[in-house]
Simulated scan of single mutants.
Amino acid sequence: MFTQYIYLHGFASSPNSAKARDISDRFSQIKTKLKIPDLNVGDFSQLTITRQITQVAAGFSDDSTPVTLIGSSLGGLTAAHLGQQYLQVQRLVLLAPAFGFLSHWLPKLGNEEVQRWQQEKHIMVYHYGEGRSIPLSYNFVTDAAQYQEKLLQRPIPTLILHGKKDEVIPIEASRDFARSRPWVELVELDSDHALGNVMEEIWQAIRLFCQLP
């Protein structure tokens, strides 16, 4: 049975990120198509998780083709919510998924900065894909607040790969998520949020989990 594979890059990233390119190359080597949509769609300023979900779902082949989503960081969080909403998503691979994203990010900004963002409607965020700072609308926060992990209860076979030294999304976030969901397998890696030093391990785990050639 044909499966559609889609990779979702992280926040302020792009389809040209190191991880996206690495995994894309490995899919090419086994002659399997991997789709990597640009979740910025030319307008990072108006990014929301809802927009990402709508965009990715619109790219599903048709209603009957099973989909495997591979998501990195915020892309992983987005993938998990897509799996909850769309039954054709039949497998999830989440790389350092951004569970509790706002609870980790907003405290780092500090209360004053967050209040200013709310008042001024935009905050400057460094965008790694663009190599420059871009204003991000406060709508991102109000939208993200409705995507709670407790809503993710559909038992989809899920593989989480998370670095024990993750400085952006602590590994506890994935441990908590996996603890109450027996369909989730968590692999803890000796790495940070970028996971750059463990790409070979990640690929072998993906290959096994997705039963790729």
Rank of each mutant, 00 (worst) to 15 (best):
L8C: 08
Q211F: 05
F99M: 06
E130Y: 13
Q118E: 11
Q55C: 07
P155N: 09
V56C: 06
Y7Q: 07
A57W: 10
Q52A: 07
V114A: 06
S174E: 10
P107I: 06
Y86D: 12
G10K: 05
P155I: 11
T3G: 02
E120L: 06
M124S: 14
D192T: 13
K165T: 12
A80H: 03
D22M: 09
Q148E: 11
D43K: 08
I206H: 01
K33R: 11
W203P: 06
Y86P: 03
A145T: 10
K165M: 09
L151D: 15
Q90W: 01
A80T: 07
T68W: 04
F44Q: 00
R175S: 08
L136P: 01
W105H: 01
Q90L: 04
I202Y: 00
Q153W: 08
F177E: 05
S72E: 12
S103E: 15
G196N: 13
L152T: 09
F99W: 09
F177G: 03
I53N: 01
L136F: 07
Y147T: 02
A205C: 11
R181F: 10
Q84R: 09
G42K: 08
Q52K: 07
G10P: 04
E172Y: 07
G110V: 07
L109D: 05
L47A: 04
E200Q: 13
Y126D: 09
V141Q: 00
Y86I: 10
A205K: 15
F60R: 05
Q119I: 14
F101D: 01
A96C: 14
L87A: 14
A80E: 05
K150L: 09
G100S: 10
I70Y: 04
L74Q: 02
A79H: 04
V93L: 05
E120I: 00
R154K: 14
L95Q: 05
I53W: 00
L47Q: 02
I49W: 01
L87E: 13
Q115A: 11
R179S: 09
T54L: 13
P37W: 00
A58W: 05
E120K: 04
I206W: 00
L82Q: 08
F177M: 09
V41L: 11
D38T: 04
A57S: 15
L87H: 09
D192H: 12
M199E: 11
S133T: 12
S73K: 04
L47V: 00
Q118K: 15
M199F: 12
S28E: 10
